[in-house]
Write a protein that binds this DNA or RNA. Structure first.
Lengths: 247, 247
DNA sequence: CGTACGGTTGACGAGTGTCAAGGGTAGTGG
DNA sequence: CCACTACCCTTGACACTCGTCAACCGTACG
């Protein structure tokens, strides 16, 4: 694990910090709300960090002092119980934002965040970031937009968990990840590597490993999807797959 | 159904509009972010409306042109399929806000909103409200706070739907509503009327009417709760009830 | 080559859904 | 004021999906 903590790049007026200008999520993340000049302020309080697969960014219940952008990789947001039950309540892909100014509660982290692939983060200390939220309304507005989108997604997932069958859950999950990976090749077909193993898929869609495995097998036998190894998924007819995803 | 549409109260400088000053959710709703002077602007674009039980405010898929505050009563936020399956993704209590500036999608309503009790709303046209969001940063900040809280709640519900047993779901639901109704009498006991019938409870916690009914009976027989009629719930030992709610 | 880990498959059982009947309660009309 | 009706809730019997437990397979890695 390497730190590049507290490197602040003194800004040349009008010029954008190098590492922002070359950042993979410069425009798709929250940073897209900021001009080259404005982003200098954000860059000056940021530090980068890389996590290996399985490493934990924050642990449920810990004091959460940092926000972050995901610049590369995938992370899971999860909640667990003592008796071993676990629910993944969200996935974080590049350009997603971690944390929000929680006014209501203590600032304890409500969820554990863990890297499911190698993960690059751009981390901002809480205090500094909140000051910038006040200074730049466009930044706060973009955070609001993102939060609303996540709320809508969480509610779609409530429909999945509350009312869909095992088969529909798996089909919906595949379509969801395909969209997030932006790998749905133009012609209505998809092909990509699942970032999650069977256990994580199960914890995300409210099933067991075995049921997930069986349903994937079913979809294969029906010719809805094709697999190369356990992780690589292919589908040549997204519409057909979508018809298996329920409502 | 009565309208008091487009009554604008010309503001005396420094004075608060009458119907805001006497509003039950003046401080607990989004309006709490605004001073007496500022709220005059919001009042001038607002209109009141009362819905009877079962009436629909917006229908899933319809063009949603209004935002609103709930001033009295309870509404449900739901999503349904053609084949009759239905999931309630949220409940709206007094001081809750309806709608959000959805930047990403079309402005079609993603959910149906229906009154489950007589419902009083304070409605704002979308355009006017969004202008006020820009003019008053405190208003937008409060909307962000609220949205973050709802996101957290939605994710708690994902845990319920994904990993809890029928019994835990019912216990969690009771505790949740008790808290929302702010009727948990000081001494660790609660007593209140459920705003939802069994069918709506079932659609909210991802079960069937029959299973909900059976689990309530179970909790009664175990002495965890007591009931007077089908709607009024009593519990003299919240901690014990909480221990049945899972994690 | 052996071990470990993740994924698959099978047999079985538990928990919840489905179908059906019966009971309470509130509102309506005679 | 009482009976009738309609609706919601409860309860029972049974079916089925999905969870549990266990064995097996394939691949990666030492």
């Amino acid at each position: 694990m390497k730190y590049e903590a507290d490197q602040s790049f003194p800004a040349v007026a009008g010029a954008e910090p190098e590492r922002c200008a070359t950042c993979a999520v410069r425009n798709s993340s929250l940073c897209g709300a900021l001009s080259s000049n404005e982003i200098t302020d954000l860059n000056s309080i940021s530090r980068r960090k890389t996590l290996k697969t399985g490493q934990i960014f924050v642990l449920e219940g810990d004091r959460n002092k940092d926000f972050a952008n995901v610049t590369q990789g995938v992370a899971k947001l999860m909640r667990g119980s003592e008796d071993g039950r676990e629910q993944i309540v969200g996935l974080l892909f590049p350009s997603d934002f971690i944390g929000g100014p929680m006014s209501d509660a203590s600032d304890d982290a409500p969820y554990t965040i863990e890297a499911v692939t190698p993960l690059d983060l751009c981390i901002f200390p809480r205090d500094g970031f909140e000051k910038l939220l006040e200074r730049y309304p466009a930044l706060e507005r973009k955070l609001l937009d993102r939060t609303l989108s996540e709320l809508q997604l969480a509610r779609e997932w409530m429909v999945l968990l509350g009312r869909k069958t095992a088969q529909e859950r798996v089909a919906t999950f595949i379509l969801h990840v395909a969209e997030k990976m932006r790998n749905h090749g133009c012609g209505g077909h998809i092909g990509f590597d699942l970032p999650l193993g069977r256990a994580d898929i199960a914890d995300h869609i409210g099933l067991t490993i075995e049921t997930v495995s069986r349903q994937i097998t079913q979809l294969r036998k029906k010719g809805i999807i094709d697999m190369q190894g356990a992780r690589h998924i292919l589908s040549y007819d997204i519409e057909r797959l979508r018809s298996f995803a329920g409502f």
